[in-house]
Structure formats: structure tokens, C-alpha cells
Simulated assay, not measured.
Amino acid sequence: MGLPVFSKCCCLELKWGALIVAIVDLIFCGSAAGHSAIIRGRDLLNILWYVAVLLHLAHIIACILVIVSVWVPKKEFPCVYLITALIRFIFDIIFVIFIIIEFGFEGDYLITAIIILIYIALTVYFWLVIYSYYRKCGGHTPAD
């Protein structure tokens, strides 16, 4: 049994759905990267913050590549998104757990955790849409 592949997204053709997903993901990614600045402080927290910003910047570049791939269909562009999304997904889960353990549910830390949790939930759907678009562009996976 393979991954589900969509033929449409948001009642639109898959390439326009991929464009919408990339733009929304770009906005959320920038928001999550900006909100992660709240944890800066000690040495370990600074390192964690730099890694978070670096991963989110790499994912922003991947979102831009997906936007470009709507007009210049190259299967390599969505592939970059799929890789960065998985890495960022795993890191964001670890990041939220760290925020909750370190700071608890108070004030700005709660808002940061909520934003990242919403982003994690949307990431699964976004990844599946871009995966479907990747397959439509001619990408091959071991399941083929």
C-alpha cells in the first residue's frame, strides 16, 4: 500500500493547488521562524534557535522552488520541498516538545507552541499535495 495521491487540491487542478500550498506554507514558515526567536537566551537555546531558523529558511527556499515549478515543470523542484518538509516536520515536533518542557504553558511560549502545532498539522496535508504534484510531474518513487 502506497501513499495517497491526490488528483485535485482545493477543487482546483493539482498544479494550482500546489501553488496555493506553497504560498500558504511560505507564510506559515516565515511566521514559525519569526516566532521561534522567543526562546533565545542561554547557549543551548541560541543553538536551537539558529538551527530552527536555518531549517525554516531552507524550507522557504523549497517553497519558492515549488512556486517556480508551477510555471517551469521540473520534478527536482518539488523533490527539494519534500525533503526539507520532512526534516522540518521532525525538528518542529522536537522543538514543540522542548518549548513545552522548558517553558510550560504560559504567555508567549504558549502562542509559539500553538502556532508550531498548527503548522505541524498542516504540514502533513501540504506534504501529500506536493508529493502528488511531484508524481504528476514525472517523479518516481520506489512504490512505482
Rank of each mutant, 00 (worst) to 15 (best):
V68C: 13
C79W: 11
A22T: 02
V51P: 05
A18G: 10
A62R: 08
V66G: 01
A37E: 04
I87G: 07
I118T: 15
L55A: 07
V72Q: 13
L82C: 12
G138V: 06
W71S: 12
V5Q: 06
Y125W: 12
E13Y: 07
C9Y: 03
K74I: 14
Y133D: 07
K75N: 10
G138S: 06
L128W: 05
L65M: 02
I130C: 07
G107L: 02
M1V: 08
I61Y: 10
A18L: 06
D43M: 09
W49L: 02
S31C: 14
L82K: 03
E13S: 13
A143H: 07
W127M: 07
A113Q: 00
L3F: 02
R135E: 00
L12R: 10
H59F: 01
K15H: 00
R42V: 07
W127R: 07
A22D: 06
V129S: 01
T84Q: 04
D108L: 15
A22W: 08
I118G: 13
L86R: 14
A62Y: 04
V96L: 00
V72C: 12
R135W: 09
H35S: 11
R42L: 11
I111N: 08
L57T: 15
C10L: 15
S69K: 04
S7A: 11
V53Y: 01
C137H: 01
Y133G: 06
V24Y: 03
G139L: 09
L44M: 05
G2V: 14
C10P: 00
I130H: 02
H35C: 11
S7D: 08
A143L: 00
D144M: 04
H35R: 12
D144R: 05
I100T: 10
I38H: 02
A52F: 13
P4K: 04
F91K: 12
I99Y: 11
Y125D: 07
C79G: 09
A18P: 00
G138N: 03
P78Y: 01
I101N: 05
V72D: 00
E106L: 07
I83C: 00
F6V: 01
I114R: 02
V68R: 14
D144K: 01
V80L: 10
A143N: 08
V124M: 08
L48I: 15
F98I: 12
Y50Q: 11
A143R: 03
C29K: 06
I93M: 13
V51A: 13
I111K: 12
I94W: 13
